[in-house]
Design a protein around this nucleic acid. Structure first.
Lengths: 214, 214
DNA sequence: AGAGGAAGGTGACGCTCTGTCACGCTTTGG
DNA sequence: CCAAAGCGTGACAGAGCGTCACCTTCCTCT
């Protein structure tokens, strides 16, 4: 029996991964069913069959599991974002692809999570700021910076621009999820045109000193 | 002594208002000093000198005080937003005024709140969704709808547009607060130009059936 | 293979916070 | 000035939290 022992060689390692996974899965279920505010560490750990003390070998608190779930979401999305960058050859193309990918992503998550959740309970996905989300932000900003360097976009404040894009994607995304039927194409069209249309109108930064003229 | 007794006639009414105010103030201080996650109902009520049970005559939980604080912020901002609407005579003017007002508002709140708060602790101001914030959203959306009706703006999806504007304002606002010196004008310029520039590029809705031609 | 040690699962325990409630003081209306 | 209602009070029971001494299971070294 050697075919499973690729990454988790020892039994110790295996159970550690399995337990972490089990806790995360249980947490997702419990948050879905009871709502985040009400769910307790005990509710989560009970569902896994593990002892209460074990929980604290993996997470420091209920909040930390929540954050880990959110981080998971961002971590899953980041490679998609990366792929958008690599597949596109223009700034416009990248932006549209990235936004479309994001809306598809959250629409998919939304379906998966559809349970009998109390009222407007927040999803872990995008509610808090996690390290992985910070990286998503940085990736977007860097993509913009590179586009600016290459002349694919005007020389604007990439930091503000990234913040604005992510903000628009998030909020319009949320609104999109509230509508029936969920129309990711319509939302993408809206967000993309807003940003790409606004881009040329943005205030320019002073051009960075370059070699004089050639 | 009749000059104070305008709204709070009886002594009962007076203490009720005073207690609520005291709890809110104490809560703001405690959240600032200890951080939201750590603060307890007891911490808050202790600072007021009231008994623990009294707290529950005013709020159901720590979360509800937090929400009330956030609601307060939105409630203070809404009249400002209203004034922007009434003072401006073009869509562009309204948008710029509203965004500038918002950035000034949060910059001011930011100063007021500056205490030795642990790390990236969230401010109540704009962190959660409260009824008053919902109203702010509706006010913005309605302003957009009216502008569209009057031909001051193209016939676009006002709901998405409002969501996008608020999103941009929030996120760019947050970024703005992280920079030194805080430059509300720069941020306003950025956000305003992004939105106003993007507006003409947005997908149009089918025009609503009007009287045929004049 | 077997022994010794390390890693980590276990659950009872003590502690803190929560939310309630019976009590009594204060205000109000008559 | 009295009766009734309103409301502040703080002790209390219950719940959840995080810890820790113990014990089982796995790993390593000979």
């Amino acid at each position: 029996m050697s075919h499973v022992a690729i990454l988790a060689s020892g039994k110790r390692e295996q159970t550690k991964v399995a337990n972490r996974r089990a806790i995360l899965d249980a947490a997702r279920e419990v948050f879905s069913e009871l709502g985040y505010e009400v769910a307790t560490v005990r509710d989560i750990i009970r569902r896994t069959g593990l002892a209460s003390g074990t929980f604290y070998n993996y997470f420091r608190s209920r909040d930390e599991v929540f954050e880990a779930l959110a981080d998971d979401g961002a971590a899953r999305f980041r490679p998609i974002l990366r792929a958008c960058w690599e597949a596109s050859n223009s700034f416009d193309g990248y932006l549209r692809a990235a936004i479309q990918a994001y809306f598809d992503f959250i629409a998919d998550e939304h379906e998966t999570w559809q349970t009998n959740r109390p009222a407007g309970e927040r999803h872990p996905q995008m509610a808090v700021q996690t390290p992985e989300m910070e990286r998503v932000f940085e990736e977007v900003r860097d993509a913009f910076s590179k586009a600016i360097e290459h002349g694919g976009a005007p020389r604007v404040d990439a930091d503000y621009l990234a913040a604005a894009c992510i903000a628009v994607a998030r909020q319009v995304g949320d609104k999109m999820l509230e509508r029936r039927p969920i129309n990711t194409v319509e939302a993408t069209d809206f967000a993309t045109k807003l940003i790409l249309g606004g881009l040329p109108a943005l205030p320019r930064l002073a051009p960075r000193p370059e070699k004089p003229h050639g």
